Structures are given as C-alpha cells and as structure tokens.
Amino acid sequence: MVGDVACLLDEELPMVRTSLYSVELLVAVDRAGSISGAARELGISQPTLSTGIARLERSINRTLIRRSPTGSALTDDGTEIAAWARDLIAASDLFEKRLNRMCDPGHDRLVIAASLTIAEYLVPQWLACWREIRTGAGDDATPRMELHVQNSGKVVDEVLGGKAELGFVECPQPAARGLRFEPIAHDRLIVVVGPRHQWAGRTTPVTAAELAGMDIVVREPGSGTYEILEQALAGHDVVAPRPASQFASTAAAKVALQDGRSVGVLSRLTVLTELAEGSLCEVATAELDLRRPLHVVGRANERLSPAAADLFRVIRVPRSGRMTSTSRW
C-alpha cells in the first residue's frame, strides 16, 4: 500500500485550469475600461459579468477589480493577469475557428443570394470589407464567396430552400414561415427619361396621374420595382399601368429609355453615371414616395456560420457605427 501511495505521489496530477470564460470577462473589462462598457461589448448584463469575475477572484484569491461609487477599475493584479490572457484568448479564438472549419462541411464556401441592384452596387463593397476583416483577424482560410444573382422573389426561395445562407432583397416578400427579414438600408426609385423625351428638362414635378398615363419601363416581374410603383400610385388612388417593357437587366432597361419614347422607374443607384453624363434625365415626382427598404433575409433561429456572421456584421456597421457581436437571428 505504501508503494501504491508513492506511485501516486510521483505521478503528475492534472492541472486545474482557470475558467477561460472568466478570464475573457476580465480582458473585456480591461479593454472597455469599465464593467458597464465590457457588458455592452459582450452583449451580457452587468450582474452576469460581475458574477463571473467574482468567481475568478475567489478561485485565485486575488482582488482583480476595485469597485467604488464613481466606477470600477482593474487592480494591479487584474491588469497584469489581463495582459497575460490576451494571447490566450487569441489562441482560443483561432482554435474555435479551426474547429468550426473541421466540423462544418461547407466551411470553405459562403453562398449568398442578392437581387440585381444590390449585387451590382452594394455587394462588392461588402465583400471587400468582409475579406479585410477575415484577413485582419488572422483567418488563414477565408471561404470562397459564391453570389447568386436573382430577382427578390427567387432570392427568398433560395434562402428558404437552403441554397443560400443569406439573401439580400429590395423589399420584404410575403411572410414565409421559417424566415426572418431585417432592414439594412434604404434605396430610392426615381423616374428617368432619355434626353429626347418630352419630360427631359421639365421643371415641375409630374403627378401620379401623368406618370400612370405613360409607357413605363421597369425591371422584370419579381424584382420589386413595379410593386413599389404600384404602392406609390395606389396612395393617390391611381392604378399603375401595365409596364410597356420589362427587362431582366437594368442595363437593357437604360438602353431602351434612350430612344425618348418611354419613362423608366429605376433605382437611383443604377443610373448615377447616366445622370452625370446626360444620357438619362431625372424627373421630379413630388407626390410619390418611391423609397424602398433593403433587407437581409435568413432562416429564423438558425446560427450563422462564422463567415456569414462576419458579413452580417459588415452590413450592420453603417446603421450602428460599430461591429455587432451576434451570429444568431
């Protein structure tokens, strides 16, 4: 029996490790400068954060935060431990990313779907920021992004069917079970004509009735453009005319307008160059509200992949002014 005890004493017992979660809380306080700031950054309540750090203090028998009526600050011990822990947290983040890649069969590909206007004029900016974030975070295996360009209705179908993880549309589609829409920005449709059209150079806004009496050029059914026009005209008890022409691409619609016989209703984003060059002219429409919200759509209550969560953060920055931390709808 004495020999057995000696063997046990000779063996190296497993090290009791400090809670990584508690250490991460301490690093957040150090970074934010206060408990309240750290709680906001992490998206948790102040009591939850305080409890976690108190547990860490008890486990190592050290006071890490000095609390006072005017606020809280790390003690010398707290500051030193937080400095030690930064590399630990960074290593843990890298471990989680690599583990996610191993466990996720689609880790090397992020599939999104977007309507034509968003795909051509907004996604390239988002993609550049997304790649910069992934690279800056030390992500050594940034997934390949695959973009499906569809009209708004088909974008929703792709997300619902699991072909795309996120979709971007000009306006929310009829409610679909299992999907969630969230506004991310606003676009504005404008009325445009070719330089030879009778409305080119017009100084007074056209009325809803005048617009309804014209040959209208819009995008294809399902693009959302015609639906916005219908709603705007209906607000003035005017029935929208059947489109004289519908095109699958904005480029084709812009060419068709230059003959001077038709009136186009298109996203302002898509005609900025033509307006500057004078090949198209904007016509004022004081009566009509042609604004349309841009939405991101995803499957409700489903956790986003790390790559999709980073893209979601990118598109949320202009609204909040800072990166969000959520990766769940």
Rank of each mutant, 00 (worst) to 15 (best):
I81Q: 10
L294K: 03
S59C: 06
E220K: 02
V297A: 00
A251R: 08
R180A: 00
Q198Y: 05
A286F: 04
H295S: 01
G153M: 06
C103I: 12
K163M: 09
L26Y: 01
Q173R: 12
C7W: 10
L272E: 15
V192M: 05
A82I: 13
G33C: 11
A256D: 04
F247G: 07
A119Y: 03
R261W: 02
D76I: 03
S327W: 14
L56A: 04
L294A: 00
N151H: 06
R261T: 14
V169E: 07
D93S: 12
A307T: 14
I133N: 09
G178W: 04
P105E: 00
V317L: 02
R109I: 15
P143G: 08
D157W: 01
V193Y: 08
D10R: 15
V217C: 02
R17Q: 15
A284N: 02
N100D: 15
V16G: 12
A307V: 13
L127I: 09
S72W: 00
Q231I: 01
V297I: 05
S223H: 00
D77N: 15
A54D: 13
V155F: 11
G161K: 11
R328C: 14
G178M: 06
A28R: 10
G213K: 07
R86Y: 04
A307R: 05
G162Y: 00
D93A: 14
E302H: 12
Q125P: 00
W84H: 09
S279M: 10
F312V: 04
T51C: 04
T75S: 12
A119N: 01
S19P: 07
R303A: 13
H107G: 05
G222A: 13
D310P: 00
V296G: 08
D30R: 10
R177H: 13
V296E: 07
D139Q: 08
R101Q: 12
A28H: 07
V149G: 04
I44C: 10
P205T: 13
A234E: 11
R109Q: 07
L269K: 02
I65K: 12
A85T: 12
T324G: 15
R303T: 15
I190M: 05
M145Y: 03
L88A: 14
W126L: 08
R109P: 05
H107Y: 13
M102E: 15
S22M: 02
G138I: 05
T70F: 08
V5C: 02
A6N: 10
F312Q: 10
A32T: 11
A253V: 07
D93H: 14
S325N: 11
L257R: 05
T48Y: 11
A208M: 05
G106K: 10
P47L: 06
A309M: 09
W126T: 03
R303N: 14
R319G: 15
A128M: 02
S92W: 04
L74D: 12
L266I: 05
L275I: 00
A164L: 13
T285L: 13
A284K: 11
T142V: 07
I184Y: 04
G162V: 01
G194K: 03
T273R: 02
A32D: 07
W126I: 07
Q173A: 09
G78V: 04
R40N: 12
Q231P: 02
A309V: 08
G153D: 04
D87K: 01
G278A: 07
L257Y: 03
R188F: 05
W126S: 06
I35K: 05
R291T: 10
E146W: 00
P47T: 09
T204E: 06
A240D: 03
A90T: 09
R177M: 08
